[in-house]
Structures are given as C-alpha cells and as structure tokens.
C-alpha cells in the first residue's frame, strides 16, 4: 500500500491532493501514520512504533489502522497498485 506520490502533507496535518484539488486535515495519530506510510514503512513497523509511543495494544491498533487505511482508499489518496 503506497500513498499517492504527489500528495502535499504539511506539519499542521493539512493534506493537499494536487491531482484532484481536494484538501484534508489529519489528527496527530493520522499524521504520524501518513508520514510513516510516505517513508515506505510497512504495517508491522508502523504498529511497533505506534504501540511504543501510545497506550494501545497491537490488536486494537490494527483495527483502527485498517479503518484509517480504508478511509484513505475511500478518499483515493492511495496509489493504484503498481504490480
């Protein structure tokens, strides 16, 4: 799963998708995840980092992580699969 390449993501959690002109806002955890996704980190690494920083277990995190990915897909912020 990769983010669209040309997304503009600012430190304030503002996201601009230049291909559609839509803009979005993220909360803190959403911003952290999206930054890791952009760095190409896989779900295992993301889970490890997040469960280390936040008071959440891996199972619970997984549930909300995939819910979040679902939202990104719905908003078409995810790159079409390359293969």
């Amino acid at each position: 799963m990769k983010l669209k390449k040309n997304l503009a993501i600012s430190e304030t959690g503002f996201v601009f998708d230049p291909s559609t002109g839509d803009s979005y806002t993220l909360n803190t955890t959403g911003l952290e995840i999206i930054q890791m996704l952009r760095e190409g980190k896989n779900p295992e690494i993301i889970t490890r980092k997040m469960t280390k920083t936040y008071d959440v277990d891996a199972n619970t995190f997984e549930r909300y992580y995939y819910d979040f990915i679902g939202m990104l897909k719905q908003m078409q912020l995810v790159a079409p699969d390359e293969e």
């Binding site: 803009s23 993220l26 995840i33 997040m50 936040y54 939202m71």
Partner: peptide, 16 residues
C-alpha cells in the same frame, strides 16, 4: 509514560 491513543482520522475539508 505512553500517550493516550486516539484513533487516526482524516477529514475532507468541505468545499461547499
């Protein structure tokens, strides 16, 4: 101490 976890969320900014 670990931070309180809030589920991640993304919101589209309303254009209308």
């Amino acid at each position: 101490e670990k931070k309180v976890f809030e589920r991640p969320v993304i919101k589209k900014l309303s254009a209308g």
